[in-house]
Amino acid sequence: MIAVLGLIVGVVVGLIVRPVVPTVVEPYLPIAVVAALDAVFGGLRAMLDGIFDDKVFVVSFLSNVVVAALIVFLGDKLGVGAQLSTGVVVVLGIRIFSNAAAIRRHVFRA
């Protein structure tokens, strides 16, 4: 419950406060958000499986974000930033879908 509240509060604060993102971080924000979403879905699935562990969740959340940003950064340096970020989004999307399928099986038993 508190976790869901945290998400809602985050969205509301982001919309109201309108923080300025430094330009250096700006290109990595969307990828980082998608990676974090993947981690969240993974965590939700683990919770439904009964194997949730907060330490694992924190590590996977942070490492997902960092690795995704790193890949995009590296891609930008190599001149294939657009393609690499597309690839990252595709892979993360596939993982989100498979996690969502597992969650669905738990919740709806279908």
Partner: peptide, 18 residues
């Protein structure tokens, strides 16, 4: 666990909104 997850989800919501 709840508090840590809430913190991370807060960060995620912030990034999402921005």
């Amino acid at each position: 666990a709840q508090v840590i997850v809430a913190l991370l989800l807060f960060v995620l919501g912030l990034g999402l909104a921005i």
